[in-house]
Every structure is written in C-alpha cells, then in structure tokens.
Design a protein around this nucleic acid. Structure first.
Lengths: 159, 159
DNA sequence: CTCATACAGGACTATTTTAGTACGCATTGG
DNA sequence: CCAATGCGTACTAAAATAGTCCTGTATGAG
C-alpha cells in the first residue's frame, strides 16, 4: 500500500519520546516499558537507529541511548531511511532503472519520480521537534503545507 | 515500506496505455498481451477499476473496457484508491482513530495527518493525461500545480 | 576482579500482506 | 445457440514484515 512499516512507526514514536527528555539516557527496557512494545522489537529498532547515527549508544551497566542530534535536526525522512528496507520510492521503477518492458511505463517513470520528490520533501521538512509539538495548524508561516517547515524566516533574513 | 503495490503500479500503466487510445475498447487479453502481464492479473485489476468507475466495462463478445472519463479527469489518487486494500495513510493511526496507547503517539497523529494530506494532494494533482505526457520539467503550468518541491529547511537551529 | 547490565550483530520463525490463479456464472454479438 | 468477454469469489503461492532469540562485547558497580 502506501504506508510506512510498523517499525518506522514505532521508531518515530520512540524517538519522539526520547526527544521529550533529550538529556536522559534511555535503555531498551525503559522504552519498551514506557511505550508498551516488545523489548526485543524495541531493541532491534534502537540498534538500527544507532547504526544510522540518529542515536548514540552507551554500553555497559546503566547504559542506554540518547539522540545523537537535537530533535530539530532529525527529519522523518532520516528515520524512515534508517528503518525501512527498501530504498525509497513509490514505485519500484523509481528507485532502480532498467527493466521497464513497455514504453508507456518508461515515460511515466519520470513523472513518478517527481511525485516521489514531493513525498520525500514532505518527509524531510518535518523534524522530530515538529512531531512532538501540538498539532499547530500554522505557525508563523505555513507549517508544512508543502513548503517551509522549520520556519525561521519570519524575521526577514532566511538565507 | 513506502511504496504503492504492484497492482496499483500495473493499474496505472494499464490506464495510461488505454488513455493513449481512449476511443478503443480494450479487452483483458489485449492488455495482457500488449503489456506483458498475466491475463488473470490484468483481469483482476480491470475489474477493480471498473468497480470504482474509472473504467466502463462492456460485456459479451467483442466487449472490453474503456476509460469512463477523459484521462484529464482521472487522478492517480483515484487509481490508488481503487487498487490498494487499505484506506490511505502513511500510518495506521492516521486512518482510523482510537488505539494509541501513548500520548506522544497521539500528539503525533495530527502531524502525520498533515503529511498525509501533502502526499494525497500530490497524488490528486497528477492525472493520467499528465502521466503519458513526456517528463515535463517545468512547473507553474497546470502540470504539477500547487506543490513547490524545492523548498529547503533542514537547517536546525537548536536554541 | 567479577558480575550483572546493556548494547551489537545476526540468524531464525511466525505472521501478515500482496500477488497471482482458478473456476463457475452472467451477458451479448454473431 | 455458442463462443467471447466481463463478474465475482475463493483459493494458493510468494514475499515482505514483524517479532524473537542467541551469542558476543563493553562497562559501570560492587
């Protein structure tokens, strides 16, 4: 379908949870407990996130995980990249080229890729910090209506 | 992952194929032949599309299918709606409410829904007519209206 | 120094989803 | 009438996903 995997979903929730207390070290056990998820599963997700440098792991007794970066700098796209198996792309064709049997499908590929970009961008424009913030119908400027999200341009000197 | 099903992919291709010759009646056999797909599969997809009024079916000898509407009026969102099982939504939570065990996840739901809207919109903005048209790098026409994809924002300001 | 705790990495199993096929029924043009 | 073609549904097969477990390594506490 058109849905992120449960692992990514969990991962987002876990990261959001950790983002609310970025200083603390969170162990797999704690997270599993707090979020009511299987410990083995939580552990698996944490490992993947650490491997992709979204989390920093501390081993040993009283170890655990902490966000590797501020929540404002972690986008959903990164989380998904870390936890989904397949590359990214709405269609198979959009991720790897080559095996289109038909011309029509090849013509469409470029179009799919453009749609992909839009989705991708939407995911990149939202950070963990945004996710734990109450709904915000609009904040300063358009929140993430396909445009600027982490808005700091209200004051006149964006970039 | 984050990918439409093969059925939707095929469906899009099939519709695009038909859109190139909207007057003609296309039988399942013909499509299977032309697009090199299994006839049973093609047939299954056609049925679903007809059921959702994207195609009009003609039974009996020398029957077949034809687009129910001009290609300009059929969006990818409709195709996907017709061919995907689950409702639509990047997360489970965004489609049906209720079972969030945690507060964090509930706070996030609204945010996911916004992201959903963006994706949805991107899919609604593209029609079959667009898909069979060559790549079209340009924006600002009626092509991929609405959603500017070029925005940036991944700069976090963690203060 | 030793041990319990906690992460690392990988293999494995179970479950769920998706893809693909089959088959009997209904419709219709020739 | 009958062969072509769609209709509906049930079923099977394959693949992807989710979830578990085991063995190894690091490290803080006692």
């Amino acid at each position: 379908m058109l849905r992120i995997s449960k692992l990514s979903d969990y991962g987002t929730i876990m990261l959001a949870y950790m983002a609310e207390d970025p200083e603390a070290l969170h162990s797999a056990a704690e997270l599993a407990q707090s979020l009511q998820l299987g410990q083995a599963t939580v552990s698996k997700i944490l490992k993947a996130l650490a491997k992709h440098s979204l989390l920093t792991a501390f081993r040993g007794a009283s170890g655990g995980y902490a966000l590797a970066r501020p929540a404002e700098e972690i986008s959903l796209a990164e989380v998904i990249d870390a936890l989904e198996e397949q590359p990214f792309g709405l269609t198979e064709c959009s991720s790897h080229e080559g095996n289109c049997a038909q011309e029509v499908s090849c013509v469409m590929r470029a179009n799919w890729m453009r749609i992909n970009d839009i989705v991708r961008q939407a995911l990149e424009d939202v950070t963990l910090a945004d996710m734990i913030r109450p709904p915000v119908p609009r904040r300063g400027t358009t929140q993430f209506k396909g445009v600027p999200v982490t808005v700091r341009s209200s004051s006149g000197n964006p970039s």
